[in-house]
Design a protein around this nucleic acid. Structure first.
Lengths: 172, 172
DNA sequence: ATCGTTGCAAACGTTTTGCATAAGG
DNA sequence: CCTTATGCAAAACGTTTGCAACGAT
């Protein structure tokens, strides 16, 4: 699956001021739950926040050292850590084509996604108008909003152009 | 998973006039693809449209005759049929908690969902304003919309009340 | 008669689990 | 020292597939 992420401007809408690094925040979370900071968890936080991109468990594992190498982390530990990261508010999880996809949550502004059914690209967008409308709809239905997930499916600009070009050629 | 569906008024927004039954429409789809109408497919269309509710493959299979009984349909055939129903435009598919969930699409107006993280209830709502905003955002990003999927997570009115009541009791 | 469809069993890919060992606080 | 965390192997989960027998057109 391809991905593209233009990191939205941190100074614009929805951005939460970050006073701690993800690692510090995770340490705090662990402490509050009586859990422990381990080499593996520390390393995984580092890896996960080393690049801002959507990823699934397999993609993360691929970018990690292989079995035998220095910082090897086993598959179950990766899965367990991902769950903790979500609980700790570091990551957000959603589902796409039957697998779990993760993205940065901590210190990252609220946003939604376009999903191109042609090339599989997932692009972010932000809309405060959307959040306003969401809250208004929820209020009307007496629903207490925690969060939401919106994916707009269709054809991205790139694929749209490629498609038209091809269609034009077909006529020649 | 619990479900509740107040079927939105067919005369209101987004509703498409239905000139054929789901079965007729499916027959047309099959014919157009050179596929065949079988007892199993006919029976499954019937079952799927016998009640308007979200369901996953397992829930559907549970409501079907067991192995040995008259209208038994095997698990693989159910899965194959569900895929065909989606292709034929009878059903819409989405993912929730790692499994595929299906809902009526044919003749049913566009809508979105509230998902109560407390009781797992999935409730529908309609908003033409939302569709307008979606299209506007997509236009700005030169994205060609095919469809979208929005789930608003939070606490439903019922759970909200139950929670407050309990909290009030705790104070006594 | 042809070719799509079915049921079975077995495979699949992702995620989770039980358990003995290792290691953080 | 006590308890949580890890790695391993194996299981679990929802879903898909190969194939021989069946059935619609």
């Amino acid at each position: 699956m391809k991905k593209k992420n233009s990191k939205p401007d941190e100074n614009s809408l929805g951005s939460v001021p970050v006073s701690q690094t993800p690692l510090q925040r995770f340490e705090e979370y662990l402490a509050s739950k009586g859990l422990r900071m381990t080499e593996q968890r520390r390393f995984l936080v580092e890896q996960v926040f080393s690049r801002h991109e959507h990823f699934d468990a397999d993609q993360l594992i691929e970018q990690l050292p292989r079995k035998g190498a220095p910082n090897y982390v086993s598959r179950p530990t990766v899965y367990r850590a991902l769950k903790e990261f979500v609980d700790a508010g570091l990551l957000r999880r959603f589902e796409l084509n039957g697998r779990s996809v993760y993205e940065h949550d901590y210190g990252y502004p609220e946003h939604d996604h376009f999903y191109c059914v042609q090339c599989g690209e997932l692009t972010e967008f932000q809309s405060e108008e959307l959040v306003r409308l969401r809250d208004e709809i929820a209020r009307e239905h007496r629903f207490r909003v925690r969060s939401h997930r919106l994916i707009i499916q269709g054809i991205c600009q790139g694929c749209s152009r490629r498609r038209n070009r091809r269609r034009a050629q077909d006529l020649v």
